[in-house]
């Protein structure tokens, strides 16, 4: 039972990481398309620091969630 639980949690964490990668790529693509549209106007619009920070926070929170899931599993399996 414990081994199966560990495997399922790892798979779910993998899916979570995959979702993060897909969303991150889409966010980059959307930002680039916005920049393209605005550059047609003229101004050099660069990706904002806030957006970079948001993506980094997303990644950190994902790592934290993964770690927490294993901590919960550890206490559950004790």
């Amino acid at each position: 039972m414990d081994t199966w639980m560990f495997i399922i949690i790892t798979i779910l964490n993998g899916i979570s990481l995959l979702i993060y990668i897909i969303i991150n790529r889409e966010t980059k693509r959307v930002t680039e398309s916005h920049i393209d549209l605005i550059q047609k106007v003229n101004a050099a619009l660069v990706e904002t620091t806030a957006l970079k920070a948001a993506r980094f926070a997303y990644f950190l929170a994902l790592i934290l969630l993964t770690l927490i899931s294993y901590v919960f599993f550890y206490f559950w399996a004790l």
């Binding site: 957006l51 948001a54 969630l65 919960f72």
Partner: peptide, 23 residues
């Protein structure tokens, strides 16, 4: 499992809405 999936869902939903706010 339900609690874990719920946490995962909320995590992605929160950051999706935050990225949406930024974009």
């Amino acid at each position: 499992m339900v609690c874990f999936v719920l946490l995962m869902f909320v995590h992605h939903w929160l950051f999706l809405s935050f990225l949406g706010w930024e974009l």
